[in-house]
């Protein structure tokens, strides 16, 4: 009972911290200075139609780089913690239904295409590298669930991951050399506003982020799943 009482006290403390957010809200219509600055200058400076993408990749690009690094660290830790020791997990008689099996094979390329579409158009429409990477990981998850593959090629996956991480930093350094600074995408031509090949290096950077996030999330899913040998599946 004393534990519950302490929990209630902690909850009251948290409520006291959160109360100012509810009571003192921004009442004015205008946006804060930094936000209106971004909205005013970003379309002309970057040529990206989606301002959120512009902020993530450029103005807050260093945050994103750090975030990708955190994601990598977390994936590595998950893989380390759940390292397989020998042949654990028994033989499962479970088999995916025929609909899941054939539907998975049919949908997989479409899902991958959709994911690539999302991260290529990140600077024009909602979406981008993170969402596209997740969609790609979902496609591989479907492949796993339908039982048509039993394991992924780890060499290819780590190759994709290290290549995209390396290329991300390389593009950022290119901005340092040929443009105003680290992660500045303006060393590539800005192009016509609203076209696929526009906004400098933003689509390049976001595609690399998409590949990296996709590879890392597939790594997490691959490490978390229960490894069972399925009978009757010849992958």
């Amino acid at each position: 009972m004393i534990k519950r009482f302490l929990a209630i006290i902690a909850l009251l403390g948290a409520a006291a911290v959160l109360l100012p957010f509810v009571l003192k809200l921004p009442t004015e219509e205008a946006l804060p200075g930094l936000a209106s600055e971004y909205i005013e200058n970003a379309p002309g400076e970057l040529g990206a139609a989606n301002l959120v993408t512009g902020i993530i990749v450029t103005y807050r690009g260093l945050d994103t780089l750090g975030e990708v690094a955190v994601l990598f660290a977390a994936t590595a830790a998950v893989g380390l913690l759940l390292k397989r020791t020998g042949n654990e997990g028994g033989v499962s008689h479970w088999r995916a239904s025929e609909i899941l099996e054939s539907g998975g094979g049919f949908l997989f390329p479409l899902i991958i295409l959709y994911g690539v579409y999302i991260f290529l158009h990140g600077h024009l429409t909602p979406g981008g590298g993170f969402q596209g990477g997740v969609v790609i990981a979902t496609g591989f998850l479907l492949l796993l669930l339908s039982g048509s593959v039993n394991s992924f090629n780890h060499t290819v996956m780590s190759l994709v991951e290290s290549f995209s991480g390396f290329a991300y930093v390389a593009v950022a350094l290119a901005g340092l050399i040929w443009a105003a600074g680290f992660l500045d995408p303006r060393f590539l031509p800005q192009g016509d506003f609203g076209r696929l090949f526009s906004a400098g290096a933003i689509p390049v950077i976001y595609s690399l982020i998409g590949l990296k996030v996709g590879a890392e999330l597939i790594g997490i899913l691959d490490a978390m799943r229960c490894k069972v040998r399925r009978e009757g599946v010849t992958a």
Partner: peptide, 12 residues
């Protein structure tokens, strides 16, 4: 009016 966040939250 935050479609980027909505997509991320729905997918992740």
């Amino acid at each position: 009016a935050a479609p980027d966040v909505a997509m991320t939250e729905a997918a992740i």
